Computed example of a mutant assay.
Amino acid sequence: MAILTFTGSQHRLLLPDDIKERAMAWVRHQATNRHRTADQAPFRRLIDFWFTAIIWAVRHEIQPADQATGKLFVNLGPNTNDVRSFESWRADLLVILAVHTFGADSPDVSNTRKVIDLANRYAEAGASLLLERLERDMDLALPRLYKVADVLTELVAEGTEKRSDQTF
């Protein structure tokens, strides 16, 4: 299989408006809040939240939405206003997710439009649940970064506990 590039052509990243609005409280770089700290907004960009929502859905075995109904929040691609830097590890994980979902022999695995559509559907499925977990028991005196760290630590501990009796 050829190495896929997600920025060679334009791809739309989507989130529903209500989710995007709630998520922006956790995102640092915005037109109106450029000087927020990581403590106040632990996700550097909305694309970082989007990717975490995908991981949240997969980790919790949530099926992707049947169809992405969200609105565009950014394009991946070669144009000046697009996100042109999509880290290779993110691309690799999306391809692994596509192989898992579509099957290794499916032509969809090498179709970046199909892979991004799958990612958008997983993000849509996981975003509201991720936000619910982040917002649960939120203490205004506690930096949001610590809340994200606590939630991710719990997630790792659950995964470790589930697999502690497995042998390889």
Rank of each mutant, 00 (worst) to 15 (best):
I3G: 02
L4W: 01
F6R: 00
H11D: 02
R12H: 12
L13N: 01
L15A: 04
P16C: 08
D17L: 13
I19F: 02
I19W: 02
A25D: 15
V27D: 04
R28M: 14
Q30S: 14
A31T: 14
R34Q: 15
R36G: 07
R36D: 11
T37G: 04
T37V: 06
D39I: 07
F43H: 08
R45E: 09
L46A: 05
I47N: 13
I47M: 13
W50E: 08
W50A: 08
W50M: 05
T52Y: 09
I54H: 05
I54P: 01
W56V: 01
A57K: 00
H60R: 02
A65M: 12
A65L: 10
D66W: 10
A68V: 06
T69D: 10
G70I: 08
L72E: 15
F73P: 01
F73W: 09
V74H: 00
N75D: 14
P78I: 09
N81H: 13
D82E: 03
V83Q: 14
V83P: 01
R84N: 15
F86M: 03
W89E: 09
R90T: 10
A91Q: 10
L93Y: 14
L93A: 15
L94G: 00
L94W: 04
L94V: 01
V95D: 00
V95L: 02
V95I: 15
I96P: 00
L97P: 04
A98H: 01
A98F: 02
A98D: 06
V99S: 08
H100V: 08
H100E: 10
F102K: 05
G103Q: 04
D105R: 08
D108A: 06
N111F: 07
N111R: 04
T112K: 03
K114F: 11
V115M: 04
V115R: 07
I116T: 08
D117Y: 03
L118T: 01
R121F: 01
A125D: 08
A125P: 04
E132D: 14
E132C: 10
R133W: 10
R136S: 11
D137N: 10
D139S: 09
L140Q: 13
L142A: 13
Y146F: 14
K147L: 10
V151A: 09
L152D: 06
L152K: 03
E154H: 05
L155I: 06
V156P: 00
A157N: 14
E158F: 04
T160S: 14
K162G: 04
R163F: 15
S164W: 09
S164Q: 13
S164P: 02
S164A: 11
F168E: 13
